[in-house]
Simulated assay, not measured.
Amino acid sequence: MGRIVHFGLGNFARAHLLDYTADAGGWDVVGVSLRSDKIRDGLRAQGFAYGLAVQGVGLKHIDILREVLVAPEDPSAVLAAMTRADIISASVTEKGYHLGADGLLDLSNSSIQADLSGTGPNTLIGFLAIHLSTRQTPLTVMSCDNRVENGSVLKAAVQSFAESAQIAINWALVSFPNAMVDRITPATTDELRTKHSDPMVVPTEAFREWVIEDNFKGPRPNWPDVQIVSDVAPHELRKLRMLNGAHSALAYAGLLHGHKFVHQAIADPDLRKLAVQLMSEAGAILPKNERVLVPAYSQALIERFENPELAHRLDQIAMDGSQKVPYRFAQTLRAGSAPSVATALDAWLEFCICETQAGRRLNDTRVDDIVQAARTSSPKTAILALINCADLVQFISE
């Protein structure tokens, strides 16, 4: 039986990678939590099985998780599990890569500094570099996060760490395929837990998509419906700029308008128009073979956003805007005229400023820097400079 060691067992991983792998059969998963024991304890109490509440389909039993390790409790146990993995995967969100505004590993980050000093490891990057320094068999390391060229970005971060730590790695043994992942997966509500008598139940939509670069060093599950392609970029750009871009636009503009959920925001005529136009602008600069898909894809996205049963919270989407905005909005704006994307960018800036003025702490890895910038005489200009997007000030008004 093949084995995947997966870092980050939030709802998305349990609705996406674990669901696909359960359908494939013949593989199991060991999970790793980099911070809290809450998910481990909840899943362990029910034998590491859980229900996947698929909207419009029903409850699906997922039972391929064999163990969940909590890294701060025993880093050596995590490293030992990694030696038995055929695939190591991760969905740790953008902030779990510890990148600077330039998209490269931030070697001054306190967590990275701790790993470099020999404390831990505590981060995905540190665990991978230390494990790969002793790896003697082929391995595929797979990012399942929403980042442009996520596999390449992860590899570059590990390489930077290894160079700084003076760790030798046999790079011929390991691959980092790029991938595009898609499945809207909101937070679990108490109502859903009660309905299914499952404290660890995960809600999700019926739609799912996974496109992976054909760059594996060893075996892989026979995942159903997964596209294995030579170039992920067209699929990735379509999803990140259209779906994620529209999601972020609805989140920031929707919260400013007093909405709480995606289905409420998309029902607002002004915000619906914003989302539709943003997807059109983003679609116009996609590779030619993807542009023909834009009208149908946009309509399908609107229908997914309208789904009230998902109850997808806008504040969940709004988290870590400093990590998301550069690739959801910036490249579309730099490519040409995109007034709706500019409006969305401005909504994020207004959201940051309004939350700061109201004394509400932003859920963002760069919250302290954003707060400081928001209190300057030109707050939008200062915030854009933080995320390496000073050139975009021309598209917004102070």
Rank of each mutant, 00 (worst) to 15 (best):
T21L: 11
R360M: 09
H312S: 13
Y97D: 09
D23M: 14
V201H: 03
R208C: 11
E213D: 08
R135A: 07
K239Y: 12
M279A: 06
I302M: 14
A13P: 05
M200C: 15
Y50D: 06
K195F: 10
N307F: 01
L99Q: 15
Q159K: 14
P75M: 11
R3Q: 15
P379E: 13
H247M: 13
E205K: 01
D115G: 01
D41R: 15
I266V: 15
N289I: 10
R334K: 14
D182Q: 11
Q299V: 02
V70I: 15
A300I: 00
S91Y: 07
A85L: 11
V211T: 09
W348F: 15
L250P: 05
M242P: 13
R313E: 15
D225M: 03
T356R: 05
I87L: 14
A129V: 00
A284M: 08
R272M: 08
E94P: 02
F207N: 01
D106A: 14
I112D: 06
V92C: 12
D19V: 06
K217G: 10
A311N: 13
H235S: 07
N244P: 08
Y297Q: 03
G10T: 04
L9K: 02
P295S: 05
S89M: 08
S378N: 15
D198Q: 08
L132E: 00
E355T: 14
T21C: 09
R366C: 01
R241M: 02
G42P: 07
L139T: 02
R193I: 10
E281G: 04
V211I: 14
I302G: 05
T204S: 06
R35C: 02
A382W: 13
R208N: 12
A114S: 10
Q277S: 06
V181C: 06
L104G: 11
M200K: 12
N388R: 07
L286C: 04
M200I: 11
V54A: 02
A282L: 12
N170I: 12
G218T: 10
F329Q: 11
A45W: 12
N11P: 01
G56M: 12
H247K: 03
T188E: 02
M279D: 03
H235L: 02
G245L: 11
S133A: 05
F305D: 04
A358V: 04
R193F: 00
